[in-house]
Amino acid sequence: MPALLVNLVAGLLFGLGLALSGMTHPEKVLGFLDFAGHWDASLLFVLGGAVGVTVVAFRFVLRQPKPLLAEKFYLPTRKQIDLPLLAGAVIFGIGWGISGYCPGPAVALLAAPENREVWLFLPALLTGQLLYRLAARQFAKVAIGNLLESGSTANS
């Protein structure tokens, strides 16, 4: 399956890039976020390099009718700047700024299993993601219930 092989190669390149850039070291990430300390601008170069490639390459890629090995592009459809986006970015920023880990480096740390931080941070991250999904499901249930309720009231 060539498509599955592409996933493997993309993952490998992504991992190599993360490790080479130094972003698998939380203290290096904190060195960027800490403007009041010995500021380390490296993260800006990582983001700049990555976005430099994607801005140019995605323009070409997304002009194609479809991907080379798939039926369609699976892209996010939401466009509006809403409260969940902002609140989510704020909550993520707090956790990131405290720990120095965003999800990529947290997964990458599985390559250093003797570092016990991965066994604390990664399960917590997955738990947080699961909690969100459970909360969202509950919220959707309540919202649909209210909608049905108001619908039946209107009909009676």
């Binding site: 060539p2 498509a3 592409v6 996933n7 190669v9 993309a10 993952g11 490998l12 390149l13 992504f14 190599l16 890039g17 993360l18 490790a19 080479l20 850039s21 130094g22 972003m23 490296s42 993260l43 800006l44 170069f45 990582v46 983001l47 700049g48 390099g49 990555a50 976005v51 430099g52 490639v53 994607t54 390459a57 995605f58 890629v61 997304l62 194609q64 991907p67 080379l68 090995l69 798939a70 592009f73």
Partner: peptide, 19 residues
Amino acid sequence: ALAGGLLIGAAATLLLWFN
């Protein structure tokens, strides 16, 4: 940092372009 960033960008491009 820049070289690592370029690799990450290449990985993202590969995944979007092919899959």
